[in-house]
Computed example of a mutant assay.
Amino acid sequence: MVLGPIFLIAAVIVVVFLFLYYVPILLWFSALVSGVRISLIQLVLMRIRKVPPGVIVRALIEASKAGLSEVKRDELEAHYLAGGHIENVVHALVSAAKANIDLNFQMATAIDLAGRDVFEAVQMSVNPKVIDTPPVAAVAKDGIQLIAKARVTVRASIKQLVGGAGEETVLARVGEGIVSSIGSSVSHKAVLENPDSISKVVLEKGLDAGTAFEILSIDIADIDIGKNIGAGLQIDQAEADKNIAQAKAEERRAMAVALEQEMKAKAQEARAKVIEAEADVPKALAEAFRNGNLGVMDYLKYKNIEADTAMRDSIAKPGGKPPKKD
């Protein structure tokens, strides 16, 4: 008997909870006192369409208080169902209206659906952002390397946020402009004496074209002297020329050694022929004896001439002594 009233009370609580969930009377009353005209049926239909009524009502109240008559309930629901961020869009519209920035609801929702934070973009339009570039190394015409760091002040361009390039593109273009400016300088001293010339040259290139930002200024924060690239290249070239000269000299030396070996071989060959010819002399003498073309006295004269020649050769040599007679 006691369980009956308990179940009844629980059922009443559930029913009241479901009623207040699908019929948000407090939310409707809050919108009513804020000057936003919206019916309870519309709030119930939002629940059925799985659109949070609290988000829509708060956005309508904020827009109404800011005097943004262009913000409509149907458009807010459509933007939410498309995956947009209603709070950011309304915040951005209010901030843009206060700062006299031309931003309508269609543009704001398009920027939001493009994946960009439209509220942050409006804030950046009012308060420009400073981007520090990484160290950029470039070489002047005199061969000296300079390492520069720049600070780029940018302001968001509302009209270019949809389809415009991001910060990475701006940094890459600024780095390219710094390299080009330093590379066209005759001397690194001129760059160190007048670093603002880099900023002027880079700004004249219109680097913010096609990006989501407007470049306000480019300031060179720091310039350091790096390596002497020109001297290093000359040293490398001299080393290469030396290696080439050494290779050519080694080639000539090898050819000379080969020619020397060839001449030694020819000398050996000639010496062998002389020895071979000398070996034929006794044979020729013996043949002459047998044929009667050479007598004993002729042979003795030949030996005397040979001994006399040997004596002269020994005397002609330093420290030479005449051969002993047998």
Rank of each mutant, 00 (worst) to 15 (best):
P5A: 15
I41N: 15
G163E: 09
N88I: 08
I25C: 11
Y80E: 02
E306F: 09
A114R: 03
P24N: 04
Y22P: 01
E87D: 14
M311H: 14
G175Y: 01
I198S: 00
R253A: 13
S181W: 01
V130L: 14
E167M: 04
K317V: 09
Q145R: 02
K242P: 04
A10S: 13
A31H: 02
I38K: 03
R58C: 06
V179F: 03
K283P: 07
S185K: 05
I182Q: 00
A316E: 10
A272I: 06
V191S: 00
F29L: 15
K266W: 08
A140R: 03
P323R: 11
M107H: 11
I225T: 10
N304P: 05
V179G: 05
G320N: 03
A114G: 14
G183D: 04
L43W: 02
D326P: 15
A209H: 07
R312Q: 15
V174R: 00
G83M: 02
A310F: 06
V162P: 05
I215R: 00
R151G: 07
G210N: 03
L161P: 00
L32Y: 13
H91D: 15
G232E: 14
A249S: 09
K65P: 02
K98H: 15
G35I: 05
L285E: 06
A31W: 00
G183F: 05
A114I: 06
L300R: 08
I215Y: 00
L93G: 07
P5F: 12
L300Q: 12
L20E: 13
A254W: 02
A190G: 12
I9P: 08
R47F: 05
L40K: 01
V122A: 01
I41Q: 11
A272Y: 08
A11C: 14
E176S: 14
L76R: 00
A288M: 11
K72Y: 05
Q234H: 06
I6S: 12
I25T: 15
K149P: 01
K65V: 10
V2S: 15
V33P: 04
A66F: 03
I25E: 08
P134T: 08
K303I: 15
E287N: 15
E77M: 12
G163V: 04
K264V: 09
N243Q: 13
E287C: 14
G67I: 01
P323H: 11
I61A: 07
V170R: 01
R312D: 14
R49F: 10
A138P: 03
A272T: 10
V174H: 01
I305K: 12
I275M: 13
P128D: 09
L20C: 13
D117H: 07
P195C: 01
Q123I: 09
G54P: 10
L192G: 03
A190N: 08
D308F: 14
E75I: 07
G4S: 11
A11K: 12
A10M: 12
A140N: 06
E70V: 06
V274Q: 10
V281C: 11
P52I: 09
I56T: 02
V23F: 14
M107L: 14
Q234G: 02
D112T: 04
E306Y: 09
L285R: 12
L18I: 10
V94Y: 06
I147Y: 01
A11T: 10
